[in-house]
Amino acid sequence: MQSQLDLLLLGTGTSSSIPSVACLTDQTKGCWCCRSTLDKTDAEGQKNARRNTSAVLRVKPSQPDAQEKVILIDCGKTFFSAAVEHWPKAGLREIDAVILTHAHAKSIPIYCTQETFNEVSKTGGGDIPALTWHIFPPDESFELCGVRVTPLAVHHGKFFTTPPSPYPCLAFLFNAQILYLSDVSYIPETVWAQLDVELALARRPVVRQQNGTNTTNGDVAKKEKPRLQALVIDCLRIEPFTSHFGIGQAVQAARRLHAEKSYLIGFGHRTSHAAWRHFCELMSTSPPTRTSHPVAASEPIPSAPNMWELYNGHPDPTKEDRDVFAQRALQAVEAWETGADASEKGGEGDVWIRPARDGMTIRTGPSGVDDDEYH
């Protein structure tokens, strides 16, 4: 029996958050996306204000006299401002538990006396209550506030050692209903194997073997496995980045995961919520909209003078052409389909995918999945 789980997204931007101060203070070169946030009365513009990725999982009680449980996922630099804006609207007051996806690579050197350190390490200091640490293995499920939490060890870039090694980050699968994949550059096959045990994944594309036989990269999903209701997945921009998915990777993963609804998070600046939505609506048609341009078996990166095509779709950074951006994004998806190796190809079939926004709630449970942005 599925539980009623609601996911409130506190942040859907990068670690630097959006808007960029550099854009806000430059009237001639500041990007349209960032500067659209200046008008607080513009509801669409406010969707371009994106804090660090973070979310609240609300576990709804199954009994009338029980209380809701609240799990905070990550607590970064912008958590306080997110709580000030969204918690009163959502009726939130307390946190029952915090789970962390990863430690950010950049650290801040802190200097203090031994006495201060002893106190802060125990309580957080000041009015912050005592921190009770619970260490869990990154490859074992555990129960938290009545929810089965399955950590999944993905890659979030790499350490620049010799040789380079993956920088680990955790995704979390909640009750086989919601998969939260906020920071990812690669999903190892070991993780796909874990997911295949938990979920009904999509049929993989047919691969022609050297002996002439056809096989699929994965079997048809077994009926007894649940279908994932909601996927929340990293997508920094059109092209891939060292530590984040590009749109081609995100769409292929969404197809393979076969969720009822997939939501993109982790956006950088220069591309607005409306531009991402325009692309996603084209991508989610049945069959998906295709570009009219031939696509090479590699990521279609334009020459340096035309890089604007991948961001705001217009040579003037203070303007935006959503059609140009959407065409480039569609090209990137097609190129990834063509050029990706077998381990990264998605499943067959259509995909429902949309950009998330700060303050949006995704609701899952016995009645299905919906949200307060797209319904």
Results as ranks from 00 to 15, higher is better:
P64Y: 00
D65L: 09
D65N: 10
D65E: 13
A66Y: 01
Q67S: 11
E68V: 00
K69C: 05
V70C: 06
V70D: 00
V70N: 01
V70T: 10
I71A: 00
L72M: 06
C75R: 12
K77N: 12
K77Q: 12
T78H: 11
F79V: 08
S81Y: 09
S81K: 15
A82K: 00
A83K: 12
A83Q: 10
V84E: 15
E85T: 12
W87A: 09
P88M: 05
A90R: 07
A90V: 01
A90C: 01
R93C: 11
R93F: 10
I95S: 05
I95A: 08
I95V: 15
D96R: 05
A97N: 05
A97P: 03
A97V: 02
V98Q: 11
I99A: 06
T101P: 10
H102N: 07
H102W: 04
A103Q: 13
H104L: 12
A105S: 14
A105G: 14
A105F: 12
A105P: 02
K106M: 12
S107A: 15
P109S: 05
P109N: 07
I110S: 08
Y111H: 13
Y111V: 13
C112H: 02
C112M: 15
Q114S: 15
E115Q: 12
E115R: 10
T116K: 07
F117A: 13
N118E: 13
N118K: 14
E119A: 15
S121L: 13
S121A: 15
S121I: 10
S121W: 10
T123W: 06
G124N: 03
G124F: 01
G124S: 05
G126T: 00
G126F: 00
G126W: 00
G126L: 02
I128Q: 12
P129K: 03
P129Y: 03
A130V: 11
T132Y: 10
W133D: 09
W133G: 03
H134Y: 12
H134K: 11
I135Y: 13
I135E: 14
F136C: 14
P137Y: 05
P137M: 05
D139L: 02
D139R: 08
E140V: 11
E140S: 11
S141G: 09
F142L: 06
F142K: 03
L144I: 02
L144W: 02
L144C: 06
C145Y: 03
G146S: 06
G146H: 07
G146P: 02
V147L: 10
V147P: 04
R148T: 14
R148E: 14
R148C: 11
V149A: 06
P151C: 03
L152H: 08
V154N: 04
K158F: 13
F159C: 09
F160S: 15
T161P: 00
T161V: 04
P163T: 01
P164S: 09
P164M: 07
S165W: 04
S165L: 13
S165H: 10
P166V: 08
P166R: 09
P166F: 03
Y167E: 11
P168I: 01
A171D: 10
F172C: 04
L173C: 03
L173S: 04
F174Q: 08
N175F: 01
A176P: 01
Q177L: 07
Q177S: 08
I178R: 03
I178G: 01
Y180I: 07
Y180T: 02
Y180D: 07
S182P: 14
D183E: 10
S185Y: 06
I187Q: 02
P188D: 06
P188W: 04
E189C: 10
